[in-house]
Write a protein that binds this DNA or RNA. Sequence first.
DNA 1: CTAAACATTGCCACTAATGTGAAGGTCAAA
DNA 2: TTTGACCTTCACATTAGTGGCAATGTTTAG
Lengths: 130, 130
Amino acid sequence: MRIGELAKKTEVPARMLRYYEEQGLISPRRLENGYRTYDDYLVDRVRKIRGLVDSGIPTRIISNILPCLDQPQTIVVKNAEPGLRELLVTERDRMTEKIDFLIHNRDSMTRYIEAIDHAANSSRETARAS
Amino acid sequence: MRIGELAKKTEVPARMLRYYEEQGLISPRRLENGYRTYDDYLVDRVRKIRGLVDSGIPTRIISNILPCLDQPQTIVVKNAEPGLRELLVTERDRMTEKIDFLIHNRDSMTRYIEAIDHAANSSRETARAS
DNA sequence: CTAAACATTGCCACTAATGTGAAGGTCAAA
DNA sequence: TTTGACCTTCACATTAGTGGCAATGTTTAG
């Protein structure tokens, strides 16, 4: 598919897709006329990129961990680049920390919201009683 | 405590603490000489700010949700600012989405790392057999 | 077939958010 | 009175995007 279709499917502006290419996150092939052409699997990949960026993971890191995120445990593992495993473990652990942190704070927010609701109920009852 | 001590306790440079103040995330009092003075509870708060920023949450949002994150369900709930509950729920749900996304991808990374390890073991055994 | 409408390209510059560095001055403890 | 922590202010850096333009390719309507 061409850039416009991918943009529509991913909700990511074409402009941004070119930007991600510039950052080395996606590498579409080209048609004879120079137009970029994207394989289907890139739809999923672009969504992952968005999610990772939204989670505060810098593009430089994203480019390293993207290979892990493609569904079939591709034979790419054969690379065995030394240091890659290290980096992946580090980033995986950092991610786990982030998850725990977010869960903790999400739960605090939930309790706070419930406190608001409870306060609203109480004052309603107080008003009714008066 | 003064800015230097807070910087040491939180591992956040003093420069950055002034920046967060500028962004309205913390409001230290001042001594007669103009020095900033921080209460103990701000240590925790600064750590939260760091975590939230690292998780891709913009400071403008952080300033809104910070009140929820202070441990004692302070009587602050009395505010009942209309629209605040809405905003909190929205951000809480956004946070949940982020958590789910991160968990999913963290698990993918873990599987990939295991695949690397398994590949390494296999080739070691192959080498031994030859 | 031609012309208008639309998609894509590269390019350059600009914005917004989050920090960071450094100059020049004040404060206070040794 | 020197040293180190702190003050303000202005400017610069980095990351992640955006806007606009002129040129070219493609599609569609008359």
